[in-house]
Amino acid sequence: MKLKDLSPAARLAAETQAIRGEWEYSAFDQLLKDLIAYDTVMDARVAFRKKWMIVAIILAFVGLFVGILVIDNGDGEAGAAILVGGIVHMITTIVLWRKAKKQALPENALAMLQQLFRQVRQDLDTKATIRVNVDLSGPTKAKCGPKQVLPPNGFNSREQWVYADPWCQLRFQLRDGYKLTLRQVDQLIELRRTRRTSRGKYKTKTKYKKLCRLTATILPPAPVQWAGQPKVDPTWERLRVAKKKGLDVAVLDRWFLYKEKFERPKQNPSGADAVGMLYRLCSMRPAEAK
């Protein structure tokens, strides 16, 4: 599915890399389906352009030698054309690859939203809408904090960049009047360590860590006495019960950690992870609400 084939809503979301506003379940599900189809095409394009770029880089190198050889043999114009042509072609492919990469969407985030609402679809209040504020642009430069210089710890230097990406906010109402919210904040940490090898060369390695924090909240339609506490994993989760505007709210946080050695982690909590949190918050409702 290409950009021009998308529905106006999906096109807007793909172009702005954001989903906002109030949505009916079926329209939201259709939007996610369209965006996932669009992203599949974009991912294929990124893969294709990457291959093309690699070929172009090799050709540019070959062109460099061939061009110099031709110039040496007296044909300066043809040699320069081969040389410059190879480099221009290489730059073009790099630009196109990066452009496609920017257009691709985070498929795991879209899949999470799709699975989440497909599972709770029958529980939604049909008279209410889903309030959505989703940013699909990922850890861009604007979300990166200042460079942190860490104690070297045996390395020559350790530098760290932290991206904060509060990309997901959802709010919807259940058939029994309870409101649920879900928020996700991602923290991407890039740690660059430089070490001097025994031969005196400097070697730099970057490690990537992604810490996702999912926060689910249940808001009752009127003050309640919670029925009890659900199962909570002490390592990765925290449950808080508080009062907000006179209402008893329960908040469940869950952290997810992903590590990668060579690139930014693409993983994301699944929709089932999110539903598992909502499910437990819902089990706190007093009996008459069930």
């Binding site: 659900p230 199962k231 499910y279 819902c282 089990s283």
Partner: peptide, 22 residues
């Protein structure tokens, strides 16, 4: 179908989280 898939996730949430008195 959609209902059997939902049933499968429902039972997995139940076994994972105990389902309280739910």
């Amino acid at each position: 179908n959609e209902e059997t898939e939902l049933e499968s996730s429902r039972s997995s949430y139940y076994t994972q989280y105990g389902g309280a008195n739910y």
